[in-house]
Design a protein around this nucleic acid. Structure first.
Length: 899
RNA sequence: GGGCGAAUAGCUCAGCCGGUUCAGAGCGCCUGCCUUACACGCAGGAUGUCGGGGGUUCGAAUCCCUCUUCGCCCA
């Protein structure tokens, strides 16, 4: 049943069959766990765009989720990780439009219905590839519940939400300044307009008074908008302009008379204190215009070219051409006062990076303040937890300053707005409906549906319940709402995370999750975000191919402490991922070794150390090393479990790594070899302890490295064919394993071996050559542990003889252990006495200075009286230890004949 | 303009609810080893004024102030 294992772990051969087996067995379903009666643990996967290709950001995000999900699943929770894809309105439409462009066509050539059908076709053929890619990295999501945000069910939820909000007066339509992308030709929400700090300019334009007596200078970063100016505003208290308020200016270039108005919103300290007012192209100006009844002149087309509302010579010019032309004309007229460099934030379309144009337009909005209040309260009353905590401030700040959400998009791909307009002039009724309307409910006349679709995020914010069947009251909804943890990149805190909380509270009366884990960003070594355009990305699938999914996951997890970015070098995959691969290989070989040394009958594998009962290893059969590794294992269970619970995944990884490599492989496995080989008795106990501690470590590591842990775990004798580590019980701390004495005593053995190895290396003793060693303690016997572990020390330090007494010889290598124990390796003429004197002298000096400093510290009355007693006691102990070490070294030097 | 975070070994980072890890890990580097699980390995080794300055304290990488640099969020 156990075929011989290759000496080198080959993840590619092992991972996909294992994954297929997990799926077949249905292990990712909430009820897969034998003890699956636990309380539900639910994680909503941030749905990737349906057209997306897996990148490291997805890799990180989904690895974190999978680690948490696998951890809780093993702990017995009914675990649901719910996956899906997002139709991603703008992004997907852009992709298909680019495809059409290659054929020399536009979406308008196809018409709406044909275009939408074309997108569906595209989505169906390429669609959901990213979910398969997530399988390659081991994600244990419940694929049987996979949703798409344009599915019928979720579409119904979208309509339900829209109608309810409309009926509650929380959705309205109106003319406002919105963020307009002249390339995508659609409105965007505030969040979708990314602000980039830009080195721009501030142009100071002079507007003459209409009567020719004087002028006012205004400063602007967008001179072309002056074509649409309908006023100049000053602060009402600004002495400089008091007399000018109410008078008229002659707008240059356009030659339009515009008034000077006084408005509180003007900042007298900015520029000249007078601002141009362009109500159609700036949100602040729009408000000023409203307060003063100013006309709005839209001087731009949807493509951001100058419209017919401007003088003819500007019409059709691109906005930036127009900018240059306006500036030139002002210069010619002698009205360009000055141009200054000016750093400011410019909005860019988050999908195509085109500069956003603030534009007056009729759109649909969600009134957010009423939704924000409960969301804010849920954080303040402690219902919501952010990890890291400080992210709660971002959340609070955003909610406090929340603005209404523009939800209509002038796109074709998405949920069409469920609003119908009656075309009968006598009626003109606006109807909002859950079902498609054929005629006007009021007059029976013909109706026409709103042309626009909804913001993609209007479907995503419902996902925590729409994916479970809402608005129907399904069993899933009852069981899995509210969920538990949301794992996300901080970039989508506002787009998605906060809005889900608002929607959850509004429609379900409860938050969709209580823990919000916001991880960092994957960056390159120059700390630049990985991106396609920079070409600094790493393809996770390439990493899986070359290093294995476990190595990828291990690297991501171990490189990520809570909330910090993960830095990976795209030019050196080896540096980033080899450690994970090497760790997997180490594990593989440790497992291979233990397996190959099990007794043929498998009896030892069934023995349980510390368990009690007939199949237990009797406590008396446990050696110091056994007790030591059991204690270390127990400590690791505590450490790792606590780390997972606190989302400190890197600490969990480090704890298990340390245990497996530094304790189990480096020491324990080396220590038990004679017992395994039958050279000394106690083989069964050693095998039992090795199997048990290795089993525990595999389980602790499984959330992070699911494949190799499963591959090895399955191979241990006594496992039913269908047993999977992914639903094996999570290890519990065992008080019987705690053993401070064993930790200390075996630690001493390690120190002795280390000291001898150090001396050997120092003097170039060949590894094959054995030496003698003396270990002695002034005024006493060396610890009994050394006698008991004599064999261990002989083997691991490669000794021909170990004498637990002082030597009469004097030429050799010397070392002193922290507790003053002296180690001596006689090397006769092989060593250079002067060199050894120098070595010991330096060490003695170092200790002497420590002792001096410590004496000074303890001589300080202030310290002794003010510091807590236990601290003082500890410091005295240190002094004693160091003094002893120093004294031993000094005596050694005398014996050696050092001067 | 407001808020926040980070600056510790060549690199990536731990440690940061003041005194056993006055400095750790992995990688890289140096030395020696194909020791019958693993050379994706084993054994040893070197490297840091814990960003600058000031302060609190008996005592600070760890708390406070300030400066510098980098990054993030919001206006």
């Amino acid at each position: 049943m156990t075929e011989p294992l290759a000496p080198q772990y080959n993840p590619v051969a092992i991972e996909s069959p294992l994954y297929a087996w997990w799926r077949e067995r249905g292990l990712f379903a909430p009820d897969a766990h034998p003890a699956g009666s636990g309380i539900p643990y639910v994680v909503m996967m941030p749905p990737p765009n349906v057209t997306a290709v897996l990148h490291m950001g997805h890799g990180l995000n989904n690895t974190v989720q999978d680690v948490l999900v696998r951890f809780e699943r093993m702990r017995g929770r009914r675990t649901l990780w719910l996956p899906g894809t997002d139709h991603a309105g703008i992004a997907t439409q852009n992709v298909v439009e680019r495809l059409l462009a290659r054929e020399g066509r536009t979406r308008f050539d196809l018409g709406r219905d044909a275009f939408v059908e074309r997108v569906w076709e595209y989505v169906r053929t390429t669609g959901a590839a990213i979910l398969e890619q997530l399988e390659a990295i081991g994600c244990s999501a419940d694929w049987s519940r996979t949703y798409f945000t344009l599915d019928e069910g979720l579409s119904r939820a979208v309509r339900e939400a829209f109608v309810r909000l409309y009926d509650e007066g929380l959705i309205y339509r109106g003319f406002y300044i919105i963020n307009w992308c002249p390339r995508c030709l659609t409105a965007l929400s505030n969040e979708e307009a990314e602000k980039h700090e830009t080195e721009g300019r501030l142009w100071h334009l002079r507007y003459p008074l209409a009567d020719g007596r004087g002028s006012v200078t205004v400063a602007t970063t967008r001179p072309e908008t002056m074509l649409g100016d309908t006023a100049v505003a000053v602060h009402p208290d600004d002495e400089r302009y008091r007399d000018l308020v109410g008078r008229e200016l002659l707008l240059p270039v356009v030659n339009r008379r515009i008034p000077i108005v006084a408005d509180e919103a003007v900042d007298p300290a900015f520029g000249s204190g007078a601002v141009k007012v362009t109500p159609a192209h700036d949100p602040a100006d729009f408000e000023i215009g409203r307060r003063h009844g100013l006309p709005s002149i839209d001087v731009m087309t949807p493509e951001a070219r100058i419209s017919l509302a401007a003088p003819e010579r500007f019409q059709g010019l691109d906005r930036f051409e127009a900018r240059a032309r306006v500036v030139a004309e002002f210069e010619t007229l002698g009205l360009l006062d000055k141009v200054e460099p000016h750093r400011h934030a410019v909005g860019h379309c988050y999908r195509c990076d085109t500069v956003i144009e603030p534009r007056l337009s009729e759109q649909w909005f969600v009134r957010m303040a009423p939704l924000a209040a409960p969301a804010l309260a849920a954080y303040r009353d402690g219902t919501l937890h952010f990890i890291p905590e400080r992210r709660g401030d971002d959340y609070t700040q955003w909610l406090e300053g929340i603005r209404d959400w523009c939800i209509s998009r002038q796109l074709w791909w998405g949920h069409r707005i469920p609003v119908w307009y009656c075309e009968a002039e006598s009626c003109m009724q606006v109807s909002v409906s859950r079902t498609d309307l054929e005629s006007c409910p009021a007059c029976g006349g013909p109706v026409r549906q709103d042309e626009d679709v909804l913001d993609t995020w209007f479907s995503s914010w419902l996902v925590p319940f729409s994916s479970l069947g809402w608005p129907d009251r399904t069993a899933d909804l009852a069981t899995f709402y509210p969920g538990s943890t949301l794992v996300s990149a901080p970039e989508i805190l506002f787009f998605w995370v906060a809005r889900m909380i608002m929607a959850g509270l509004h429609f379900m009366g409860d938050v969709p999750y209580t823990d919000i884990y916001l991880h960092g960003t994957v960056r390159d070594t120059q700390h630049r975000k990985m991106s396609k355009s920079l070409g600094n990305g790493i393809d996770p699938l390439e990493v899986v191919q070359r290093y294995g999914a476990d190595a990828l996951r291990y690297s991501l997890v171990s490189g990520m402490s809570v909330g910090t970015d993960v830095i990976l070098d795209p030019n050196d995959l080896e540096a980033s991922f080899a450690p994970g691969r090497n760790f997997a290989n180490k594990l593989w070989n440790a497992g291979r070794f233990i397996l190959s040394n099990l007794a043929p009958g498998g009896r030892a594998a069934a023995l349980r150390p510390l368990a009690g009962g007939p199949d237990a290893v009797r406590p008396g059969d446990l050696t110091l090393a056994d007790r030591w590794i059991l204690a270390r294992c127990d400590a690791t269970v505590r450490e790792a479990t606590e780390a997972y619970e606190k989302f400190r995944l890197n600490e969990a990884a480090a704890a298990v790594y340390r245990f497996l490599w530094s304790d189990l492989a480096d020491w324990y496995i080396e220590q038990i070899k004679p017992r395994l080989y039958g050279d000394v008795p106690g083989g069964d106990a050693a095998r039992a302890v090795a199997v048990q501690t290795f089993d525990v470590a595999l389980r602790l590591l499984h959330p992070i490295m699911p494949f190799i842990t499963e591959a090895l775990w399955k191979r241990f004798p006594g496992r039913p064919a269908d047993a999977s580590i992914s639903v094996a019980p999570w290890p519990r701390p065992d008080p019987r394993a705690e053993d401070g004495a064993a930790l200390a005593e075996f630690g001493l053995v390690q120190q002795v071996v280390g000291a001898i190895r150090g001396i050997r290396a120092e003097y170039g003793v060949q590894p094959g050559q054995t030496v003698r060693a003396f270990v002695s303690q002034d005024g006493g016997q060396p610890a009994p542990a050394l006698e008991r572990e004599r064999g261990t020390i002989l083997r691991l330090a490669r000794l021909s003889e170990l004498v637990l007494a002082e030597s009469t010889e004097r030429i050799g290598g010397h070392a002193v252990l922290p507790d003053g124990m002296a180690v001596f390796v006689p090397l006769g003429e092989a060593i250079d006495v002067a060199r050894e004197c120098g070595r010991l002298g330096a060490e003695a000096e170092r200790l002497a200075s420590l002792v001096t400093a410590q004496q000074k510290k303890l001589g300080n009355e202030q310290f002794v009286s003010r510091a807590p007693a236990d601290v003082v006691a500890r410091e005295r102990e240190k002094l004693a230890t160091w003094s002893e070490q120093r004294d031993v070294l000094v005596r050694k030097r005398e014996r050696l004949g050092c001067v």
